[in-house]
Simulated scan of single mutants.
Amino acid sequence: MKQLIIATNNQGKVREIKAILGNFYDEIKSLKDAGIVADVVEDGDSFHANARKKAVEISEMVEGDVLADDSGLCVEALDMAPGIYSARFSGEGATDEKNNVKLLSLVKDQDNRRAWFVCALVLANGGKEKLYVEERAEGKIIDEPRGENGFGYDPLFYVEEYGQTFAEIPPEVKNKISHRAKALKKLQEKVQEM
């Protein structure tokens, strides 16, 4: 039986990954589902470094593959912030809502709203990195949240091609065009070549 443990407890990420890689593994579990309590400190200087650290450390504790992602939002006018600090952008006790409020306050006087989501994925097994991929999704930041789907910065991330935010785009469409979807597709292709 081929098992994949996703190095997260973020149920939004788990849903997206299961929807895309579900046919490739017999079982896909979050850390919580697998009974793993691990608090890997994300102190890397890039999305890749953080994803690698999580995947490698957790793969030393379990049998089978471990998939870790590090993803975030980069806003051009903010010197690529929040970047690797996206989840904790608003400081101690950060929530999606607080992060979005801070982002809106920083971009309110900016003409350049160009932004992109980045997703770095690392697949590890037995304490070693096996595969690494990175992809991005382009968009811009709008003035107020729109939509009920998604999580994180999705309600502010507007995709011009669709005329909607990531939180308005139906999940089945987002799971084809998002940074994570693109990275997972690339990862899936590489896994099949192994």
Rank of each mutant, 00 (worst) to 15 (best):
R114E: 09
D45P: 06
I17R: 07
D96E: 13
D43K: 10
E97K: 14
M80Q: 13
L31A: 01
A38C: 07
Q3W: 06
V101F: 00
A120K: 05
E63F: 03
V41Q: 11
A38S: 13
I20Q: 03
L67M: 11
K32S: 15
V40Y: 06
E97G: 00
L121G: 02
L67W: 02
S59P: 12
H48F: 15
M1H: 08
L106R: 10
V101H: 08
L121N: 03
D111Q: 09
A115L: 04
S90I: 06
A34K: 04
R114T: 11
I17L: 12
G64M: 08
L121D: 02
E60A: 07
D109F: 14
N10K: 10
R15G: 03
D43E: 15
R114I: 11
E16C: 04
V37P: 00
K2E: 13
F117S: 00
M61Q: 14
L67S: 10
R113L: 13
V37N: 14
G44P: 07
R113K: 15
V62A: 00
D33Y: 12
D45I: 13
A49E: 14
E92K: 15
A115E: 04
K102A: 02
K108E: 15
K54F: 08
A120Q: 05
E42Y: 05
A19I: 06
M80C: 02
G22R: 09
S90N: 05
D39Y: 11
D96T: 09
V62W: 05
L67V: 07
D65S: 12
D43V: 05
D109T: 14
L104Q: 10
K2R: 14
L106N: 05
V75F: 03
K108Q: 14
K98N: 07
S71L: 07
V101C: 03
A87W: 06
D69Y: 08
L73N: 03
R88L: 10
R15Q: 13
V37T: 15
D33M: 06
K13I: 03
I84S: 02
L103R: 11
N50T: 07
K29Y: 00
W116L: 07
S30F: 11
G44A: 10
T8N: 05
Y25W: 12
A34W: 08
C74H: 09
S105F: 00
L104F: 08
N99E: 09
V40P: 02
L67I: 11
L21D: 05
K54Q: 10
E27T: 13
E27Q: 14
S46W: 04
I5N: 01
L73F: 05
A51V: 09
N10S: 06
A120E: 04
V118L: 09
G64V: 02
W116S: 09
E57N: 08
F117N: 02
R15K: 15
G22I: 10
E92Q: 12
I17W: 00
V14W: 01
V122P: 06
K53R: 15
E76Q: 12
K108H: 11
A120V: 12
K2W: 11
L21C: 08
D65N: 13
Q11A: 13
S90G: 01
I6R: 02
I17F: 00
V75D: 01
V41Y: 07
S59F: 01
D96F: 13
E16P: 11
